[in-house]
Amino acid sequence: MSEALQKLSDAGVSIWLDDLSRERITSGNLSDLIKNDSVVGVTTNPTIFAAALADGESYRDQVAQLKGDTVDEAIVLLTTEDVRNACDLFRETYEATDGVDGRVSIEVSPGLARDTNGTVEQARQLRDMVDRPQVLIKIPATKEGLSAITQTIAAGISVNVTLIFSLERYREVIDAYLTGLEQALEAGQPIDDIQSVASFFVSRVDTEVDKRLDEIGTPEAAALKGKAAVANARLAYQVFADSLRSERWQRLAEAGANPQRPLWASTGVKNPDYDDTMYVSELVAPHTVNTMPEKTLQAFADHGKVTGDTITPYYDDARRVLEQLADVGIDMADVTQVLEDEGVEKFAKSWDELVQTVQKALDAA
């Protein structure tokens, strides 16, 4: 077992793998990661499934059986089977952590990102088709998604809220979660088995901000490169911590509610000049999740460092970074809105690629 990953887990960080394929399941690779690398969950998205279906031979038999289905029906049947089987591998983890971990995420169609009713309907469908208590339904944190998050939580369905970039939107996501719990309570439903994570994206923030800093071109701007993403995420954790001290949360906690944990997403480092584990080592605190591509997981297992809590002692530093960014001309509100819009577009493009990949397989069958 990797000592570095074990230390990360001991520090309160749940390690989730940002990848899933049938080959990873059937080969025993995912089981090995659970056993040897402290992996306690998996996240997926259309890009991941498109890559798995394009490269994997293990889908061939099922695709042949689906040749009478529409491409949309086939996608749901293919992806939910992978998620269901992954859930089964995490069953022991799920039970050992009282449902906190052992979670596997599956995303609603990106085309529904602006469709509240369609999102809620598909969340129910995916929950029922996976038919495992560990499943998390991924819903993007668009304005329209906020209401869908509330309604889905109120229906007793656990949610992974994705595509969060700004502190303001994160506060709205927390409110949507709490409102959903309150509605479930009012309807007489138990809430102690509802779980949620809020996926706060990291590396994409640095990519966008660094590009703008390069355009500004001053020494002051250059000195701020690679600092925005961690600062933004650290202040998001402060928002999370503050929310747990509210009377509103205390009332829900007394009724059995589980906190909506911050999840650090997009933690693969895109700039080769930066430490390849920075979005893991600099975001360590209790009650967090870090979902990593396998490359980042391996890098941290090899040379990652855990030095204790690297978030809560640095709130003031994080605020100073954002103030300095504003001083040199970086509009973080614009940055995060651009990233949200691009995120929705990227997922939609990935879904189109997934549709094309499955359609090609169905035609071949």
Rank of each mutant, 00 (worst) to 15 (best):
residue 249 W to T: 10
residue 178 L to V: 14
residue 63 V to E: 00
residue 235 L to V: 10
residue 263 L to H: 00
residue 329 G to I: 02
residue 207 T to R: 02
residue 57 E to T: 14
residue 131 D to Y: 06
residue 21 S to W: 04
residue 143 K to S: 15
residue 129 M to C: 04
residue 273 D to L: 15
residue 116 T to K: 14
residue 300 F to H: 09
residue 82 D to M: 05
residue 252 L to W: 00
residue 182 E to Q: 10
residue 13 V to E: 07
residue 345 E to V: 08
residue 86 A to Y: 06
residue 93 T to G: 05
residue 84 R to P: 04
residue 336 T to E: 00
residue 166 S to H: 04
residue 4 A to S: 11
residue 356 Q to N: 13
residue 7 K to M: 09
residue 204 R to P: 10
residue 27 S to L: 01
residue 111 G to V: 08
residue 254 E to K: 15
residue 305 K to I: 12
residue 334 D to M: 12
residue 300 F to Q: 06
residue 236 A to H: 11
residue 86 A to W: 13
residue 65 Q to M: 09
residue 40 V to M: 03
residue 44 T to K: 11
residue 321 V to Q: 13
residue 99 G to Q: 05
residue 57 E to S: 15
residue 256 G to A: 10
residue 8 L to P: 07
residue 48 I to R: 00
residue 314 Y to W: 14
residue 140 P to Q: 12
residue 87 C to F: 11
residue 13 V to A: 10
residue 340 E to A: 02
residue 123 A to V: 15
residue 87 C to R: 04
residue 148 A to W: 03
residue 190 P to M: 05
residue 110 P to E: 03
residue 356 Q to S: 14
residue 83 V to T: 09
residue 73 E to C: 05
residue 106 I to A: 14
residue 172 E to F: 11
residue 213 L to H: 00
residue 53 L to T: 11
residue 70 T to A: 06
residue 192 D to G: 10
residue 91 R to V: 10
residue 331 D to N: 13
residue 158 S to T: 05
residue 196 S to H: 13
residue 313 P to M: 05
residue 163 L to E: 04
residue 29 N to I: 13
residue 93 T to D: 03
residue 176 A to L: 11
residue 205 V to I: 15
residue 214 D to K: 13
residue 142 T to S: 09
residue 117 N to C: 07
residue 132 R to A: 14
residue 332 M to I: 01
residue 195 Q to G: 01
residue 257 A to D: 01
residue 213 L to T: 01
residue 293 P to H: 11
residue 170 Y to A: 02
residue 225 K to S: 11
residue 165 F to C: 11
residue 151 Q to R: 13
residue 122 Q to S: 02
residue 179 T to K: 13
residue 307 T to F: 01
residue 56 G to H: 04
residue 12 G to Y: 00
residue 208 E to A: 13
residue 198 A to V: 09
residue 328 V to K: 02
residue 100 V to H: 01
residue 194 I to Q: 00
residue 21 S to K: 02
residue 274 Y to K: 08
residue 125 Q to T: 13
residue 151 Q to T: 05
residue 364 A to T: 12
residue 271 N to I: 14
residue 106 I to C: 10
residue 214 D to N: 12
residue 275 D to K: 15
residue 264 W to T: 09
residue 9 S to R: 14
residue 52 A to C: 03
residue 65 Q to N: 04
